[in-house]
Each structure stands twice: as structure tokens, then as C-alpha cells.
Deep mutational scan, measured.
Amino acid sequence: TFELKGKVGKVVKIAEDHYLVEVEGDKWIAYSDEKLSLGDRVMVVDVDGLKLKAKRIP
């Protein structure tokens, strides 16, 4: 999973306390310091076990 750092994905679902992000065809649980919206493009900035930390990108 460490190779996911720096990869770009898309928010495909918003849950109460996390997001579901699709990166290279796989879906991952993600969290972010900022509020994300459905369809936002994100970059993986860190990997915490099986969770990704994501940041919105333009």
C-alpha cells in the first residue's frame, strides 16, 4: 500500500466519518483534513495501515 502515496484518485462515496476513494481501480477508505465532495480528485498523501489520507487537488 505504500506505493499508493502520491497517486491520484476520486471520491466515490461519503460516509459519516470517512470517504471511499477509488485509486487505480481499487476502492480504499480514506480520511482528509479538509471537507471533500463526491467526485473530487484527490492525491494520496499518506497511508495508515489500510486507510489513506487524501488531499483535494484541482
Rank of each mutant, 00 (worst) to 15 (best):
Y31I: 13
A54K: 01
V12P: 00
W28D: 01
K35M: 10
R41I: 11
K51R: 11
L20H: 10
K55Y: 02
L36P: 02
V45S: 04
G25D: 05
S32F: 03
L50G: 07
D46A: 04
K51M: 07
A15K: 13
R56S: 07
D40P: 00
I14C: 11
E24G: 05
K7T: 03
D17M: 09
V47I: 06
W28A: 02
D17F: 10
P58Y: 07
K10Y: 09
K7Y: 03
M43N: 03
G39V: 04
D46K: 03
I57H: 10
H18K: 08
D40G: 05
K7I: 03
V42N: 00
E3V: 02
E24V: 06
V21T: 03
T1F: 15
D33V: 09
R41W: 12
G25E: 06
A30I: 04
K5A: 14
V21N: 00
K13P: 00
D46S: 04
E24T: 04
L50R: 09
V47D: 04
W28T: 01
K5H: 14
K10T: 13
A15N: 12
K5E: 15
E16S: 09
I29Y: 14
E22N: 07
E24R: 03
V42M: 10
V23K: 01
V8I: 12
A15G: 08
V21C: 05
L52T: 02
E34F: 04
V8C: 14
L38H: 08
L36K: 00
P58D: 13
R41N: 13
A15I: 14
L52I: 15
V44K: 00
L38C: 12
V23N: 02
L52Q: 01
G6A: 02
L36N: 01
S32E: 01
E34S: 06
K7Q: 06
I14W: 10
D26Y: 13
V47H: 09
S32P: 03
V8Y: 07
D48S: 07
L4Y: 03
P58S: 09
I14Y: 08
A15H: 12
K5I: 15
D33E: 10
I57A: 09
Y31S: 13
R56D: 02
W28H: 06
L38D: 08
V44N: 00
E3P: 15
I57V: 12
D46M: 03
Y19E: 01
D46P: 02
V21F: 03
L50N: 14
G49Y: 06
V44R: 00
R56P: 09
A30C: 05
D33T: 08
L38P: 08
A15E: 10
S32H: 03
I29C: 11
I29S: 13
M43C: 15
D48Y: 08
T1Q: 15
G25T: 05
V42F: 14
L4D: 15
I14R: 08
I14S: 09
E3R: 01
K51Q: 05
R41P: 12
V11Q: 00
K27V: 10
K35G: 08
K51F: 07
S37C: 13
L20C: 08
K51T: 13
G25K: 06
V42D: 00
Y31E: 12
I57S: 06
Y31A: 09
D26N: 14
E16A: 09
L36W: 13
L52E: 01
W28M: 02
S37D: 11
L52G: 01
A54I: 15
K53A: 03
G39E: 10
V23E: 02
V21D: 00
K53Q: 04
F2T: 15
E22H: 09
V47T: 07
P58V: 08
V8L: 11
Y31C: 14
V42T: 03
D17I: 11
K51H: 06
D17A: 11
I57F: 07
I29T: 10
D46H: 03
I57D: 11
L4E: 15
L38W: 10
G39C: 12
G25L: 05
E24C: 15
A54R: 00
D17W: 09
A15Y: 12
L20G: 04
G39A: 11
P58K: 05
G49F: 06
D17E: 11
G25W: 06
D40C: 08
V44M: 05
H18I: 13
F2N: 15
L36S: 01
T1N: 15
V11C: 13
L4A: 07
L50P: 13
D33R: 05
E16M: 12
V23Y: 01
E16P: 10
Y31M: 13
L38I: 08
K35C: 12
E24N: 05
K7R: 04
L20E: 07
W28C: 02
E3H: 04
E16F: 11
G49V: 07
A54G: 06
D40V: 05
A30V: 04
K10Q: 11
V11M: 03
K5M: 15
Y19A: 10
V11E: 00
K13N: 11
L4K: 10
V8D: 13
G39M: 10
E24A: 06
K7M: 05
E22L: 11
P58I: 07
K55I: 05
I29D: 14
L36Y: 03
K7G: 03
K10V: 11
V47M: 06
K7A: 06
K13M: 10
D46T: 03
G25Q: 07
L20M: 12
K55C: 10
G9N: 00
I57Y: 11
A30L: 04
W28Q: 02
I14K: 08
L50A: 12
M43F: 04
K35D: 10
G49L: 07
K53Y: 04
D48R: 03
R41A: 14
E22R: 06
K27L: 10
K7F: 02
D17G: 11
G25S: 06
V12W: 06
K13D: 09
V45L: 05
K10N: 10
L4T: 14
K7C: 12
D26K: 10
L52H: 01
H18T: 09
A30R: 00
A15Q: 12
E24L: 07
S32V: 14
H18R: 08
A15S: 12
E3I: 02
L4I: 14
G9K: 00
D48H: 06
F2Y: 05
F2M: 15
W28E: 02
Y19D: 02
R56C: 05
Y31H: 13
V8R: 04
V45A: 05
L52Y: 01
D48F: 08
G39D: 13
S37K: 11
V11H: 00
K27Y: 08
V45K: 02
K55G: 09
S37F: 13
A15F: 13
S37Y: 13
G25R: 06
Y31Q: 11
I29W: 13
E16Y: 12
G6V: 01
K53M: 04
G9Y: 02
R56W: 12
K10S: 12
Y31K: 12
A54T: 15
D33G: 07
S37M: 11
I29H: 14
Y31D: 13
E22C: 11
A30G: 14
I57K: 04
V45Q: 04
V47Q: 14
V12E: 06
V42G: 00
R41T: 13
A15D: 13
V11A: 03
K10D: 13
E3L: 03
D48M: 09
K5V: 15
L38A: 08
D48A: 04
V23W: 01
K51G: 04
A54C: 15
H18D: 12
L20S: 07
V21L: 14
V23G: 02
D33S: 07
P58L: 07
V42R: 00
L52F: 02
K53D: 03
D26G: 13
L36T: 01
E16I: 09
A54N: 01
K10H: 09
G9P: 00
S32D: 04
K7W: 02
K35I: 12
V42L: 06
F2L: 15
L4W: 03
E3Y: 04
E24Y: 04
D48G: 01
K35P: 11
K35H: 09
E16Q: 10
K51A: 10
P58R: 05
M43D: 08
L38N: 07
V47S: 07
V42E: 00
A54Y: 02
D40A: 06
D40T: 05
K55H: 03
K53T: 05
K27N: 10
V47E: 04
V44A: 03
V8G: 05
L52S: 01
S37E: 12
